[in-house]
């Protein structure tokens, strides 16, 4: 019986994550169509909202082409790494308060590990293998360029990503993500919610920018860069293997928006909901809704920024990473430490 609970949780989360990825793909396309003053997908289903299903069917049916000179084994392995990393990261993110079901309280997190934040940093660090190996194994110079760029980019931005979280860790005093969410449930002066975005604005901004680089979204999508690299690391991929890269990009987007929500925006915390005197089950469901709503806001930001900013040049990207983001996040750690010392004196 011990194993049943995690298995059900994993099944539910995996299903929700994959469905959400398909919806976010369509949302991205619809929203970008709106921004560019065109219709976007509007043929399949009501208002075009079944387009993703048609796309998945098409990708599965397509022929899987592997270039003759490619390293077959690594070529197959790379998309698997990408999607595995994208899906397993969600395991340590709490997406709701404890929920009372069938007379028992359930934690809405798959694995509440002691080193949650470190686990997330480790997993995002693994994501680079998918892109790098895809670029190398295709035996195509554009792909190789994409792979090289992705490894350089992810290593540069991983550092400031980790450092921008140190302020949050210092305030919460723990690496357990569930505890970090719980540390944000109070109020300052009785009405400002104690969210980390208010106490750690610089950490929030640096983490947000770094998450763009980690998910390869514009303006940091240099590993793909369609105009110059013909699609970058996935130039030589077709069918569902390309689909897996596509899916993992959007799953990554969902995971990082969930992470930003949990670490900076109070997670599932819905301000003042505790005082409304609701039934515990309704309250728990409402908190899951609050978590999803905050995620949706962040994802909308990703889409808007994609169609607002142009792509960075490669040296600009490196300069921003090493000469701006890294010093700023180190200064943020120092400032947080000084303020915390001053407050506890």
């Amino acid at each position: 019986m011990d194993l049943l609970e995690p298995i059900i949780k994993i099944a539910v989360v995996l299903g929700a994550l994959l469905t959400a990825s398909a919806i976010v793909v369509l949302f991205d396309r619809k929203f970008s169509a709106y921004i560019q003053n065109r219709y976007g997908p509007n043929r399949v289903g009501p208002g075009g909202w079944m387009q993703s299903i048609a796309d998945v069917v098409k990708l599965v049916m397509k022929e899987d082409i592997v270039p003759k000179a490619a390293n077959r084994f690594v070529h197959d392995l790379a998309p698997m790494i990408s999607i595995t990393v994208a899906l397993t990261t969600f395991a340590v993110i709490p997406f709701g308060d404890t929920i009372p079901l069938f007379g028992k309280e359930y934690n809405l997190i798959i694995a509440d590990v002691n080193v949650g934040i470190l686990y997330i940093l480790a997993m995002t660090g693994m994501g680079v293998y998918g892109l790098t190996l895809a670029g190398w194994s295709s035996n195509n110079k554009y792909s190789l360029f994409g792979g090289l760029r992705s490894s350089a980019q992810l290593i540069s931005y991983e550092l400031s990503m980790g450092l921008s979280l140190i302020g949050v860790i210092m305030i919460a005093g723990t690496l357990q993500i569930d505890d970090i969410v719980r540390s944000q449930t109070g109020y300052w002066f009785g009405w400002i919610p104690q969210w980390n975005v208010i106490s750690q604005p610089i950490g929030f901004i640096t983490f947000f920018v770094a998450s763009f680089a980690e998910t390869n979204r514009l303006p940091f999508d240099l590993p793909e860069a369609e105009p110059e690299l013909v699609g970058g690391y996935h130039t030589e991929y077709s069918g569902m293997k390309f689909g897996l890269f596509f899916l993992s990009e959007y799953a990554n987007m969902i995971v990082s928006s969930a992470l930003i929500t949990a670490l900076f925006l109070g997670g599932w915390h819905l301000p003042f909901a505790e005082t409304w005197g609701l039934d515990p089950l309704v309250l728990a469901l409402l908190k899951i809704g609050a978590f999803m709503f905050k995620m949706f806001i962040i994802i909308s930001f990703y889409v808007v920024i994609r169609w607002t900013l142009p792509r960075f040049r490669y040296d600009q990207l490196m300069n921003l990473g090493w000469k701006v983001m890294l010093p700023v996040s180190i200064a943020n750690v120092l400032a947080t430490g000084v303020v915390m010392l001053w407050l506890t004196r």
Binding site: L118, L121, A122, G125, M126, V128, Y129, T132, L133, G135, W136, L144, G147, L148, S151, A152, L154, I155, E158
Partner: peptide, 18 residues
């Protein structure tokens, strides 16, 4: 995992590919 698999081996791969 962070240091060896995530950082050092990525640099190794980077150099091998270059």
């Amino acid at each position: 995992i962070i240091v060896y698999a995530g950082a050092i081996m990525v640099l190794f791969l980077f150099v091998i590919m270059l």
